[in-house]
Design a protein around this nucleic acid. Structure first.
Lengths: 146, 146
DNA sequence: ACTCTGAATTAGACAGAGTCCAGATTTTGG
DNA sequence: CCAAAATCTGGACTCTGTCTAATTCAGAGT
């Protein structure tokens, strides 16, 4: 997609069946303009940068609404907080356990072989690969995978 | 390993450089005797089943100590709580998002291909695959993986 | 423009997981 | 058996996230 403006956001929201309100546009803009993984409190800080205008409840309501409408995705890697990811394409993550930094891994070209059959009566919601990394000497990711 | 008794636990702890105290043995026993994924509050409930003897602080201290000494492993799949896993062998998980149930996937035979090179100056801590599932009609796990 | 109505937002109370602290208790080495 | 070190404890606290009841907003119809 091109540039992200607040106007695009309104369209984006509408196209996902979400009523575009001021607060929702601001929150969507915070996530989509910087293509980053943000936590709820980071989003609240961004949105209320100068004059506080959006309440905690609205931030959470809105993020959960976005999730439900599949506008964004949640990434669960840190026990303390959820990250919200504006990228809903299939992709995976590097998670730097020291810094808390989260980086995308394009799913293009990544394959998993040898997963067992799913249990009966159950469907896949998604498959996440999380490569936990930390600062240190040389290494190859491949080593870990028998 | 054979049967899990409280006596084995003491040895196990010592072998991991952990001073075996009553509370630590009980907590280790709770995890290892049933080979299950338990949350901190489940562990506390088990350990304090009859007469409350172990405080919340001790449960958390102990679990964090076990983690640090690599006696157990944590599984982060649910935003609300951490699961502690007595199985430190390399393996992955099915996570039933509806029931909260967590099931092991043996890593034997599972391969990931096409992961990009690690960023510079960084080493792998571990690679987790989480297959999120929920009740529903037929499905193949493989479909998700381009 | 005005009103009515349902949707959205708000502040603040609340809940649950996990941490911290200072004092009490247990364990250990001598 | 004693002192020092390690561990455990209750309770206060923090943080993320949810709930609720009251208020505000937006827009459709007149």
């Amino acid at each position: 997609m091109q540039q992200y403006s607040r106007d695009n956001m309104a369209e984006l929201l509408r196209s996902h069946d979400i009523n575009p309100t001021h607060q929702r546009i601001e929150i969507a803009y915070a996530l989509f303009s910087r293509q980053q993984h943000l936590s709820a409190d980071q989003i609240m800080a961004i949105v209320n940068d100068r004059h506080s205008e959006t309440s905690k409840a609205t931030v959470y309501n809105t993020l959960n609404l976005f999730l439900e409408k599949k506008l964004i995705r949640e990434v669960i890697v840190d026990p303390n907080k959820v990250f919200y990811d504006p990228n809903t394409q299939l992709h995976h993550h590097f998670y730097n356990v020291t810094s808390g930094e989260l980086t995308d891994i394009d799913a293009e070209g990544v394959t998993i072989c040898g997963l067992p059959q799913l249990p009966e009566g159950v469907i896949t919601e998604g498959v996440d690969i999380i490569v936990r990394i930390r600062p240190g000497a040389t290494a190859q990711a491949q080593e870990q995978l028998a």
